[in-house]
């Protein structure tokens, strides 16, 4: 584990230094990254220009969902976003070059092309989140206050697990990088809106199959003092860290299985 973190830090550090050599390019890409997510929020703002409530949620409440989901995805994307290149690595054989170095393959694949420009997404989501926290008319209990950082970290871990499971899937389906976009960017698109607007079956899938609801919906509903549309027991609102640990465990197993399959079949 220490060896993996060390390798990750070494490679990520080298990429940061090389990025800083082309500072103009870096600034352009970070701004672009910021704008890409800002446009999504612009669409939400336009929607709220036509209605005061969407699915019963106000703009600050929706912005709270948007900010928490965006920050969680942004963190996962910053740390593990390069994993979606795994299929390409299997196809062109460059995965082999990682396997002959004295460092865990996972750390090398995750740190490769470490892109600080992804801070653009985090920054934009964080700004929206700060605005939402200021604009929300909520009575904050100490538990609620603690729940915000907990849901951000748990959410990031759940998104991270999805990145890794998606990468592991590419050991078998090398062209299927886009499938994981459905769950990462798609999951982000889903959880930035109030859960009340979606069909119950979709919510069940996003709770029990892919645990997207634990990224922000359930803890946020608790903070906002709103009932859960599925009527699930209230203690689930605090289970995000537990779900995150389980998701990471599953992701670890999937990665191992994928790598093992690659090392026995070579393709």
């Amino acid at each position: 584990m220490a060896e993996a973190l060390r390798a990750y830090a070494l490679i990520a550090g080298a990429w940061i230094r090389s990025t800083m050599a082309y500072r103009f390019s870096f600034v352009m890409m970070t701004v672009g990254n910021f704008l890409a997510t800002a446009l999504n929020f612009a669409a939400i703002a336009i929607i709220f220009g036509h209605t005061r409530l969407l699915g019963g949620f106000s703009l600050p409440e929706t912005a709270f969902l948007y900010g928490t989901s965006g920050c969680a995805l942004g963190l996962a994307d910053l740390v593990l976003g390069s994993m979606d290149q795994l299929g390409r690595r299997v196809r062109d054989g460059t995965l082999d070059t990682l396997l002959v170095r004295p460092a865990p393959v996972f750390a090398q694949a995750a740190a490769d092309r470490f892109a600080l420009r992804r801070l653009g997404r985090i920054t934009q989501s964080a700004l929206v989140l700060i605005w939402a926290l200021a604009a929300l008319k909520v009575v904050w209990t100490p538990a609620d206050v603690l729940l915000v950082p907990v849901m951000l970290l748990s959410g990031a871990a759940i998104f991270g697990a999805i990145f890794v499971i998606g990468a592991a899937f590419q050991f078998w389906a090398t062209d299927a990088a886009e499938v994981q976009n459905s769950f990462t960017y798609g999951g982000n698109g889903l959880t930035q809106y109030p859960p009340t607007i979606f069909a119950k079956d979709l919510l069940r899938g996003a709770t029990f199959v892919v645990p997207l609801a634990f990224i922000n919906w359930l803890p946020a509903l608790h903070i906002l003092g709103r009932p859960d549309p599925l009527g699930l027991p209230g203690w689930l609102d605090f289970c995000s860290p537990l779900v995150a640990v389980v998701a990471c465990g599953v992701a670890g197993l999937a990665w191992r299985a994928g790598l093992k399959s690659y090392r026995s079949t070579g393709s």
């Binding site: 929607i47 209605t51 699915g55 798609g186 698109g189 809106y193 607007i197 979606f198 069909a199």
Partner: peptide, 13 residues
């Protein structure tokens, strides 16, 4: 997947 997400958003609006 994105079609579903967007469709429900539009339905709400």
């Amino acid at each position: 997947i994105f079609g579903f997400i967007l469709a429900y958003t539009f339905i709400a609006l």
